[in-house]
Design a protein around this nucleic acid. Structure first.
Lengths: 229, 229
DNA sequence: ACAAATTTAGACAGTCTTGTCCAAATCGTC
DNA sequence: GACGATTTGGACAAGACTGTCTAAATTTGT
C-alpha cells in the first residue's frame, strides 16, 4: 500500500514531482510551526507551487498532514530495514561492528532529515491523531525492534553475547547508544558526527560490559569497515 | 530568583491563586494545542477566569508562555533535587536501592504532570525560544546530571561500583532505566507504575552487570523501601 | 502544432484570534 | 458598612487563515 511506482500512468510528468515537493515543504513547516501554526501559503511558497495546487493534490490541511506522516514513516522504515540488514551477524571485532551499526542507525535513520521530522511530528501531534500514530507504532518500533532483537538473539545463540531477554537487550542497546544525545534530541538539535560516534562508543562499551563474553568464541577477524548502507 | 514567597504583601489574597491557576491551565492548553493553537479564551475558561484577567497578570501570549516554562522548570528542579537527596549513598541492597531511586525519579519528576508538560514544551517549542530553553538546559540537565554523576562517583569511590567516567555512567543510567518507556514517552503517554518498575528493574540489572562488583563490599542489609519523597 | 490536463494568480466569504477598552459587579480589608 | 483594588463580561478593531472559485497561462503528450 501507498506505493507510488508508476510515474507515467495517470499524471503527466511533473505531477508526482510537485506532490513530493509539497509534502517535503509541508514536513518542514509542520515541524517548525506545529500543525496549528503551519500556513498553507507558506508551504506552497516553500514548495515553489501555488496554493491552489496544494489543495488540488491534498484536499485539506489535515489530509496533507496525514500524507506527510505516512510518507515520512515509509521512508524512515525503508532506511531502518536497510540498516538492520547491515547488522553484524558474524562479527569480527564485535565492539567495532556494533559501534558501526549504531552509528549507521543514528546517522541514516534517526538524525537525518526524515528521522528528525518524523520524531518531532510524533512528539508534537501524536495525541491528536491516535489512529495515525498507532499505525506508525506498529510499522515502526513494533516491527523494527523485534527484528533487531532477533539479530541480538542470534549473536547470543552464536556465543557472542549472554542475553536473557533479547527484546529488552535491543531496547537497552538504543538507550545506551543514545544516552549522550538525549538533551540534544530534546531540543530538536542535530548532533555532530563526532558526538554520535562518541555516544555510540560509550554505549557499546557498556553494553558489552553487561552482555559480552570475555573472549570472542570464534577466531578474531579484522575490524569490519563502517559501511554506509 | 522567581521565588514567590510573600502571599500577603501587594496583592490581596486570591491574586496569586489566580495567577497560579492561569499558569496551570495555560500549561495544559499549550501542551495539547501547541503555542500557535493555544487559545487565550480557552485558557481563561479552563482557569476559571475571565480573559481580561489573563492579560492583567501576563501581558501577552508570549509572556504567558515564558511564565509557564519558567514555573515548570522551577517546580521540576525542586522535585529532582529532592529526589537526588534520596540517592543511596551507603546502599544496603544496591540493586534494590538503585531501582527505588530510578522509580522515584520517574514517578515524581519525569512522569508527573509537571515533568510531562515541561518535556513536551521543550520538544515542541524549544527551537522557537533558544534563550529560554538554553536557560532550562543549564538549570536542568546541566545542573542535575553532574549532581547525580557525583553520587555515582561516590559509590565508585566507596567500592560499590567500577566506573570510568561518572558523567557518562549517569547518562547511561537514565538511558537504561527508561529504555522500555521510550515509545510511550514519544507519544506523550504516561506509563503505568508497573511498567516504570519493570523498566527500572531491567535497566538497573544491566547497569550493575556493567558497573557492579560481584559481591557487595560491606555487609548486605535488607532491601530499602521505595520511599515516595 | 494541437488538445487536454494542470497550474497559476488573485479575489473572495467566512471564521477565528489577539489584544484593548470600559462600565458594572465583586472581593478583601479596615 | 464603606472604600479601593481586582475581576468580569462584552463589545470592538485589526489582522490572519482556510478553503473555494474563476479565468488565464502553462505544461504535457501526441
Amino acid at each position: 500500500m501507498r506505493a507510488s511506482v508508476s510515474p507515467d500512468t495517470f499524471p503527466p510528468r511533473g505531477h508526482e514531482a510537485k506532490r513530493l515537493s509539497i509534502v517535503d515543504a509541508a514536513a518542514g513547516v509542520f515541524c517548525r510551526e506545529g500543525f496549528a501554526g503551519a500556513n498553507i501559503d507558506l508551504i506552497a511558497a516553500e514548495a515553489g507551487v501555488s496554493r491552489q495546487t496544494v489543495y488540488n493534490h491534498h484536499g485539506d490541511k489535515e489530509k496533507l498532514f496525514m500524507a506527510v506522516v505516512r510518507d515520512l514513516t515509509d521512508r524512515c522504515n525503508v532506511g531502518i530495514f536497510a540498516t538492520i540488514a547491515t547488522f553484524p551477524d558474524q562479527p569480527g571485532d564485535l565492539e567495532a561492528d556494533l559501534i558501526g551499526f549504531a552509528v549507521r542507525m543514528n546517522q541514516n535513520c534517526i538524525c537525518n532529515r526524515d528521522g528528525k521530522f518524523l520524531r518531532k511530528l510524533i512528539q508534537t501531534e501524536g495525541e491528536r491523531y491516535p489512529e495515525l500514530f498507532a499505525e506508525w507504532r506498529e510499522q515502526g518500533p513494533g516491527t523494527t525492534l523485534p527484528a533487531i532483537a532477533a539479530r541480538f538473539a542470534r549473536l547470543a545463540y552464536g556465543g557472542y553475547l549472554t542475553i536473557d531477554d533479547p527484546d529488552v537487550a535491543a531496547r537497552q542497546f538504543f538507550g545506551l547508544v543514545n544516552a549522550d544525545l538525549q538533551t540534544t534530541f530534546m531540543l530538536g538539535g542535530t548532533p555532530r558526527e563526532g558526538e554520535v560516534v562518541q555516544s555510540a562508543t560509550n554505549g557499546v562499551r557498556t553494553f558489552l560490559r553487561a552482555f559480552g563474553k570475555r573472549h570472542a568464541p570464534g577466531s578474531v577477524k579484522k575490524h569490519a569497515a563502517l559501511a554506509n548502507a
